[in-house]
């Protein structure tokens, strides 16, 4: 059924065997995380890896009510929202002017973006910290949003630019003849056509802002302002032996990202494959 050639019939079972092993390697730790989030500390000691005896949401209630997790989620909503909107606006406008307007020094700007993409974080993070403290942006979500927008913009501009170049030029020329101004052309004609590209950019930027650790650790330290990633880290370091509780908090953090991924996996995979530079 699955094989086209006679050799394929013999080979397919081996392929499935290897694939199932790899899937277990990737998936079982996640299942255990979910199982253990329902166990009390006592049960965890008796049954470290298996199914929980009951669907007990105590850990979830407690993790949420202890404050840092609920607040962390809210801070992350602000952080992710700000980053997605900021990145789409800045990168969208810049890509538009590079692809369709009479932008001076076009090649120079594009080369600059390529250089910035390959610039390691360590090259600028130290002076940036002291610049941010002088500008009173340190320890604010707004300051972190600006950083994330700046980090996401170069790759997003290049991705959107290739997208916008593909839209036929006759469209905006016709609109210009009809008396539309530059704003109306960008907003009414090009933006709706560029929506799939913006969706990819938004997903990559949003997921990045949600899980980012290095800048979040350094630039936001007040407990009330921590986004989910650093709030969870602090929570796990403050409750080292309460694995059930921390696991529940970890599931709370993971659920929105995984659900979004499952719903939009094609877009996700395409976006991350084009922009994911992580080791």
């Amino acid at each position: 059924m699955t094989a086209r050639t006679s050799g394929g019939v013999r080979r397919t079972p081996i392929s499935y065997f290897v694939l199932i092993l790899l899937a277990l390697f990737a998936g079982v730790p996640l299942l255990i995380l979910v199982f253990n989030s329902f166990k009390s500390n006592l049960e965890l000691g008796q049954n470290p890896l298996g199914l929980p005896s009951a669907l007990d949401f105590d850990n979830y209630a407690e993790a949420w009510s202890r404050g840092s997790i609920g607040r962390g989620m809210w801070n992350s909503v602000v952080l992710v929202g700000g980053t997605v909107i900021g990145t789409c606006l800045c990168a969208g406008a810049c890509a538009y002017s590079l692809a369709r307007l009479d932008m001076p020094f076009k090649r120079g700007v594009e080369n600059y973006l390529f250089v910035v993409i390959s610039l390691p974080v360590q090259m600028f993070i130290v002076p940036l910290f002291f610049l941010w403290s002088n500008l009173a942006l340190i320890d604010t979500l707004f300051g972190l949003i600006i950083i994330y927008v700046a980090l996401n913009t170069p790759f997003s501009v290049l991705l959107l630019r290739t997208f916008l170049v593909g839209i036929p030029k006759e469209l905006d020329e016709a609109a210009r003849i009809d008396g539309a101004n530059e704003w109306q052309i960008a907003w009414r004609i090009i933006l709706p056509l560029a929506r799939p590209g913006l969706l990819t950019v938004g997903l990559v930027a949003g997921l990045g802002a949600y899980s980012e650790l290095l800048f979040a650790v350094i630039f936001v330290t007040t407990p009330e302002k921590l986004p989910m990633a650093t709030a969870l880290l602090q929570y796990s370091q403050g409750h080292t032996q309460l694995f059930g509780l921390v696991n529940a908090a970890a599931v709370i953090m993971t659920l929105p990202a995984v659900l979004l991924f499952l719903f939009m996996q094609r877009k996700f995979i395409a976006g991350l494959a084009s922009g994911g530079v992580k080791g």
Binding site: L30, S211, A250, M253, Q265
Partner: peptide
């Protein structure tokens, strides 16, 4: 999808697991 899910999850969660 199963292979890719860990890549989508935040490093702090994977560390905790």
């Amino acid at each position: 999808v199963v292979f890719f899910i860990p890549y989508v999850i935040a490093s702090v969660v994977n560390a905790q697991i």
